[in-house]
Amino acid sequence: MWTDTHCHLDAAEFDADRDAVVARARAAGVAQIVIPAVEPANFDAVRRLAAEHGLAYALGIHPLYVMRAPADALDQLAAALHAHQGDPRLVAVGEIGLDFFVPGLDAEVQQRFYVSQLQLAQRFALPVILHVRRSADLLLAGLRRVGFAHGGIAHAFNGSEQQALAFVDRGFKLGFGGTLTFERSLQIRRLAAGLPETALVLETDAPDIPPQWLYKTAEARQAAPGQGRNEPAELPRIAQTLADLRGWTAAQTSAVTGANARAALPRLSGLS
């Protein structure tokens, strides 16, 4: 059985067939899915979906959303974490982090939200799910500054081996998904093949980051909406790429990455 550690099941792309998406994932052997929030407006949605489908969720404010966040966004997050701290399906604070790829984002605002959310995760003794895009060193600096001690997952990791090992040394697992399936993703494949096996977890980031066999150009997606949409049922096939790179069987890959997911997000162990 498989664990998808990162899927935005609440996204509008799934509005037409969300139940079928979950059913396909179950049929493919995906036993658990973690649904991270991106802003206060979707806190209730991810919590409701997790309860409805027997899944897990995280609450946080994504760096791409901090510029439009209401003035009390961090207070809303603190209140939600307090209100639901006893919910076993709340497994992390996330998706949080830093993004220095997308233009027009204020670095200072991002940093303020990131550090404040790390402090909230520390307060509620929860791991974090980190958005890492051209920001690994500053994310690590934030972890050191806060003295963050609860680990988590560096989602869609695409940094250097040195950065990867720095996250691992701080108790983090690294998320690998659709990008792994592209032959040109040489650095990501090298990391997936060479890092300690205890460092690896699987994810889809659905509906985003489609694997190679679903990838379409932007023009093709506009011409045929819905084509190339990623979903959690693709996880076992993505996992096969990891298995091939490591020389593992599918069963070994499932066992290793599942154990790593539970180590990164301990509350997963209590969910069916």
Rank of each mutant, 00 (worst) to 15 (best):
L55N: 03
R26F: 09
L180H: 04
D19L: 06
W2T: 08
A107N: 10
E234I: 06
N42G: 09
F124I: 05
R134N: 15
K216L: 11
G178R: 03
F167G: 02
F176Q: 03
R26E: 11
D208C: 06
A156M: 06
C7F: 06
L74H: 08
P88L: 08
Q187W: 05
S272Q: 15
D75H: 08
M1R: 15
R190N: 14
A78I: 13
A51Q: 08
A12I: 15
R134Y: 14
I33Q: 01
Q240R: 12
L49A: 03
L9M: 12
R246I: 15
P232V: 08
Y215Q: 12
N230C: 14
G60A: 13
E197P: 01
I129T: 05
A218Q: 05
Q227P: 00
V109S: 14
H150Y: 13
F157G: 10
N42T: 12
E13K: 03
G258Q: 02
E39K: 14
P63M: 07
A192Q: 04
Q122A: 11
A79G: 12
T179E: 04
G159R: 00
A20S: 11
Q187I: 08
L139I: 15
V21S: 06
R237M: 13
A149K: 09
A164R: 00
F101E: 14
G152C: 02
D244P: 02
A166L: 11
S185W: 10
A239H: 05
L138A: 13
G86R: 03
F43Y: 04
F113G: 06
T217E: 14
Q32M: 10
L74D: 14
S254V: 02
A31Q: 07
I96E: 01
A218K: 09
L165R: 12
D106A: 10
P207C: 15
V201A: 04
P266C: 13
Q162V: 12
E161H: 12
M1T: 15
A80S: 09
P63N: 12
L126H: 00
A28E: 05
D44K: 01
G152L: 00
P232L: 05
A264C: 13
